[in-house]
Amino acid sequence: MENNELQNTWNQLDKSFVSKSEVELDHLLNKKISKIILKYVYEFMISLVLCGGVLIFLIYSVINRSGDVLFIYNNLLLAFIISTLGGSLLATWLKFRNISYKKSLKTRLGEQIKILAFWLKGKYSNVYLFLIPVFYTMLLLSIHVYFEQATFAEIFNNEESLTGLIISLPIGLFVSYYVAHKIRKYQLNNLEHLEYLYNKIQMP
């Protein structure tokens, strides 16, 4: 087929669509907006329950245990980690989401790659390997100390408590690493696909 023939054949496609009326398009847009709002409310609620719930517990328990210095340090450090990490993740998510669709395909892909690569391949991309056990141990200790109604020091001197911690620690770590690994793998696949597309555009 020559260029003209190709274009003529292609233009026949225009006749094959049934156009949506303005009312239908308006309805479709409304439906999509409602769906997006619902999705964000849902995601926001989950984040709020997870991060907010833990933060409230940490602060509430610190107020109730103002005498246990180790417990206070532990909880404040945990609250700091959660706020910093949660804030950074939220900022990244917003940045990623707000990359304009109006930009050229190459620019848009480049910006997406830059953000994802920072988290997955950047200087601090392996921090999670260290952060997970530290975070999990501190959280487990905090919950355990609080509900056992003992001080931080007493827990380490109690054989039963120590046994409980030793058993639950590897199980929790396994689950946490497994989830983190799955999320990372999914995001790495995304990154790989974006890089594949970007390279296809750059190809001479």
Binding site: L13, F17, S19, K20
Partner: peptide, 13 residues
């Protein structure tokens, strides 16, 4: 909506 209605064929294609 007026503009979209006129150019929706692009999205279909």
């Amino acid at each position: 909506l007026n503009m979209l209605s006129a150019y929706q064929g692009i999205i279909h294609k």
